[in-house]
Design a protein around this nucleic acid. Sequence first.
DNA 1: ATGAAAGCGCTAACAG
DNA 2: CTGTTAGCGCTTTCAT
Lengths: 334, 334
Amino acid sequence: MKATIYDVAKAAGVSIATVSKVVNQTGNISGKTRERVIHIMKELQYQPSVVASALTGKKTSTFGLLISDLANPFFAEVARNLEDQAQAEGYSIVMCSTDNKDDKGLNYISLLQRKQIDGLIVACEFSRWPLLQESIPEGFPVVLFSKDIPSLSMHTITVDDYKGGYVAIQHLIALGHRHIGIVTEDSPSGEYRARGAKQAMRDASIAVNEDWIVTVNSSLEDGLAGAARVLGTESRPTALFTCNDLLAVGSMQSAQQLGLRVPDDLSIIGFDDTILSRIVVPRLTTILQPIPEMAKETIQLLLRQSDTPDMPKQKIMFQPQLVEGNSTTAVVEQ
Amino acid sequence: MKATIYDVAKAAGVSIATVSKVVNQTGNISGKTRERVIHIMKELQYQPSVVASALTGKKTSTFGLLISDLANPFFAEVARNLEDQAQAEGYSIVMCSTDNKDDKGLNYISLLQRKQIDGLIVACEFSRWPLLQESIPEGFPVVLFSKDIPSLSMHTITVDDYKGGYVAIQHLIALGHRHIGIVTEDSPSGEYRARGAKQAMRDASIAVNEDWIVTVNSSLEDGLAGAARVLGTESRPTALFTCNDLLAVGSMQSAQQLGLRVPDDLSIIGFDDTILSRIVVPRLTTILQPIPEMAKETIQLLLRQSDTPDMPKQKIMFQPQLVEGNSTTAVVEQ
DNA sequence: ATGAAAGCGCTAACAG
DNA sequence: CTGTTAGCGCTTTCAT
């Protein structure tokens, strides 16, 4: 059987209160007894039970993560970084893929609460966001990761999607492109990105051609099909901005199928800078989200909420960053 | 405050034992009282505390997963599938990336034990495997996922790596290749795969050219560099078998840099069938691991171990499967 | 500086 | 069919 605090107390000839104090470094314990207790603990390989201590109102040192799909490279990277940061603070993370289904998400939330997690990171979509808000007790530590739902009163870590879209287009414009298409995803961040993109075009007095703007789901196939719709138009654009890397890769494949060379015949710029962008040839030009920093801030925000339950809600927005690959190039003068 | 079993009992005018019984569907409770209690539970939004019940010796309904690197697409997919299967059984998973570092792994194991997880899935490497064995109590549910360490007495779920390598080479041979290189990873499964590959060559009376066999770490760059070493030889092979998809992609890039077209000048076959293989052009021919089935069996094995602690150790080996992409083609007669 | 004792929320005999 | 009660392993006053 595993050793308990009683076993240690008995073997050390002290009370369990004393053992508890040396474990938690609380109260006043003489150097001698501390030594002795510590020695015995080693000997017995005593491991304090998180479960028991959680029952007395202490932390479980566990966070929950609701994520769209762990198998998606972008989210996998997010999960990995969150875990690293949590681990550095002595926390572990229970990860839950919701596929952006409200009921799955709500089920997980209820389950995680029963498990008494110390905080929740939401990195998935909800079709009815208020449900989320309702199912979480007031004052419970939560951070919305990488999505900003203005109607929700919650701490939020995002990248500036609008700016990201804007920067992407600026890059294309700087390369001389005047005919730009957009393949966007049907999601809040997708919208922001597209909106920023359009604004950049307007600010440069470039016509926004609605025929060159398509909204699709987020899969390779959708990217391929979406790009095909744009590229199949009579007068196709010379450059394409896609709202994420997966769509960008799909678009590259579409271009190839149509006999268009990237970047010579068509420049493509993606978003996220996932591993995919490094895999494809040519290396994708894309907009990077500073995931490590965002993850760090997320964990810190969660931690701070535990100490300060009624902390004013923060929205922290990180700046996206252009990563130049080889999928974009200067437009060739006709 | 959250409602406890006492609140429910009081509101329903029964004892906590009764409430406990209706919650756990144990004992005999009259229909009427059950109804009433259930009603009150809803009203109070009562959520039984997993922590408290775990303290009385019940399960935490939580598994731990030690994985090399969640951000790696292959492992991300493994994690996702494990989580799905666990979720279907009412379990959640705490995920821990170890980067294959022994100390990280051991730390996690100790932490997870303190959290009283019900089982552990090990999907990472250890340089000193016995450490693993030692740090886990006899009879504690564990499954080794996708790695077979013969010296360890543990339940194991693997794919037949040897066979996978064998099949890969058979495929190349069937296409007429007689000059085959291997880019393998420095890991147990990598070795099995390479070994199977060599055997297939011998069985077909094909010379195994050691100059065409390189062992590298597992990264895109390593794949690129490794392939370059092989392809740079005086008389390069017409086909390459790489021990995983990442290395395959790296090899494709190397081929491209050398001006070799895939598959016309060089056939490449990978291993794992990750998302990467679907991303690249041409679509990678690769050897698939049936991850969903493996994940399912893993969870079941964990579950069964809880019921039958002294269950005889099983090693379940799944069959790999060839997925034909466009990165391999018949060798052109000179 | 140390210990006794009362809980934390729940389960499981054991009574009734 | 329902309730009483003794823990589960730990934390935390409050005494000593």
